[in-house]
Simulated scan of single mutants.
Amino acid sequence: MFEAQTFEEIMDRMLSRISADIDTREGSVIYNALAPAAAELAKSYIWLDTVLELVFSDTAQGEFLDRRAAEAGIERTAATKAVRAGEFTSGVKIPAGSRFFVDNLYFQYTADGTLECETAGEAGNANISGQNLLSLDTIPGLQKAIVKEILIPGREEEDDNNLRERYFTRVRREAVSANKEHYKQWAEEVDGVGKAKVFPLWKGDGTVKIVVTDAKLEPASDILITKVGDYIDPEPGQGEGQAPIGAFVTVESAEWKEIEISASVLPEINSSIDQVKDEIEAGVLNLFKKMAFEDNVIRLSQINNIVYNSPSVSDYSDIKINGLAENLVLDDIEIPKLRQVTIVEQTR
């Protein structure tokens, strides 16, 4: 809005008000006297432009977006802690709150028998399954303590784009009165949930099915499914949770759909077939992450684009998804999982 208010433009306007019989050339006394003020005014206009960007929700960032969202009763989702399973000496009672250490991470044993990472965010999602835990407390009889699989992945603090999307959903009243979007909102409010999909009337009047992924956009664990159910409908049909009276909610996990990609490829000179495979795998994994519960069709054209744009690929042909040269349609509750990429090297 104020892009035209540059130092030069301001100086020209100021100097035009000076009497014609006074020297206003650059370096003159009057020019040098006005220049600092013009520079400060130009800087003020830059700040005014910035302030306008921070006022409106579609361009606000950081704490300014937080304040805008707070007007609609929405708060940025804080980072959540990873919850993992543990394996301990059989028959040994471990007090809740007992602390363990592994790979620069501290975990607390919880009342439900799981291990909660003390560090919020994705740190607790580290690849440490099977490693021995060091007990920081004296626990009689404890000889074995091993950290196991992730039950609820940790998640970083909500970014601006997600917060802005939730804000727009609220102010545009897309999620109201227990409609589909409202159930989706409730499910995704639960710590550890990534995305949710809602199926109304799936078993008759008053029934609602919610299928969820975890924060890593992978199938949810039983403990996470229970958390979602307890938050939305702890006593079916009684209206004790978020769901209204008469609504019977079923929560299920998304399911993997294993995908195999194959192609015949001619690598670039000085590029190996392993480089080609790594680049294609990375591209497909990124595509699948974006698709989870957003698009249920894996298009052959998308795989073609990934192969075509791989730096190590000179030419290619015969691209297939699960052995077929056609699009693959996923079921509504499925999320794609890359099983393998098979590359056949063409000869020059």
Rank of each mutant, 00 (worst) to 15 (best):
M1G: 13
F2W: 06
Q5P: 01
M11I: 12
I22C: 06
G27I: 10
I30Y: 05
P36Q: 05
A37Y: 07
L41E: 08
L48D: 01
T50F: 11
V51D: 02
A60M: 04
E63N: 08
A72V: 07
I74Q: 03
E75P: 10
A85G: 11
G91M: 05
R99C: 03
F107N: 00
Y109Q: 03
S129C: 08
S129M: 04
I139L: 13
G141T: 09
A145K: 02
A145F: 05
V147N: 14
L151Y: 05
E156N: 05
N162I: 06
R164M: 02
Y167A: 06
Y167W: 09
T169M: 10
E189S: 14
E189Q: 15
D191Q: 12
G192K: 00
G204S: 07
D205K: 15
V212H: 06
T213E: 03
D214H: 11
A215S: 10
K216C: 14
P219K: 02
V228T: 01
K257G: 02
I261W: 01
E268W: 01
E268N: 13
E268A: 08
N270R: 11
D274T: 12
K277T: 14
K277C: 10
L285Y: 01
N286L: 08
F293G: 03
E294N: 12
S301A: 08
V307C: 04
S310C: 08
S314T: 04
S314N: 08
S317V: 08
V329K: 13
L330E: 03
I333Y: 04
Q340K: 15
